[in-house]
């Protein structure tokens, strides 16, 4: 686990929890771990977010959605994109991992297991439909850069696996 402090004012947490990742609507940006800090200074909220992947087209939308949610709660805000420390899949909360699985996206495994499934065809990613581990990699890149494509050989369900980024 990377030790990086998040600095978010308690009062802002419920507001930010309403903002979701536009590509994975069941996942709040808080559970995704992209909000690194949010503090109120002189009646203005300063938010820092970090991109999951450099080219993630969702980041601009997330920035706008945060501003809109805060505006709705009565705050003006500024959103800054920071690159350091770099986002890691470790920052997805347990609740976030569960939301991913329920949505049909297998949550990231650890870095070694990730290598095993993506490079050596090991069958350990659990099918999000039936729970079987008899699954195989179809493509290292899935519907977005952060996911790989899998298929279950038991129930035939095709599904995405959220790649480990560490």
């Amino acid at each position: 686990m990377t030790t990086t402090e998040q600095n978010i004012d308690d009062i802002l947490v419920p507001i930010l929890e309403q903002v979701s990742d536009p590509e994975i609507p069941v996942l709040s940006i808080m559970d995704m771990g992209v909000v690194r800090s949010a503090v109120i200074e002189n009646n203005k909220v300063k938010v820092q977010i970090t991109p999951t992947y450099s080219g993630c087209p969702a980041m601009d939308v997330i920035g706008d959605d945060i501003k809109a949610a805060l505006k709705h709660a009565g705050y003006d805000s500024e959103v800054e994109l920071i690159l350091h420390p770099a986002w890691t899949t470790d920052w997805i909360t347990p609740r976030g991992r569960k939301a991913l699985e329920d949505y049909g996206i297998a949550a990231p495994l650890g870095p070694e297991a990730d290598k095993d499934v993506l490079l050596h065809g090991k069958r350990i990613v659990k099918c999000t439909n039936c729970g079987s581990q008899n699954t195989r990699l179809v493509s290292q890149f899935g519907s977005t850069a952060c996911k790989a494509q899998f298929q279950c050989d038991d129930c035939q369900e095709p599904f995405d696996y959220f790649k480990c980024l560490k």
Partner: peptide, 20 residues
């Protein structure tokens, strides 16, 4: 389809890096 998506995803990563 898979390689098509992979190549465009890689492209997207690279453009994201370029933006930074």
């Amino acid at each position: 389809l898979e390689t098509d998506i992979a190549c465009t995803n890689i492209s997207l990563d690279l453009f994201g890096q370029v933006r930074s």
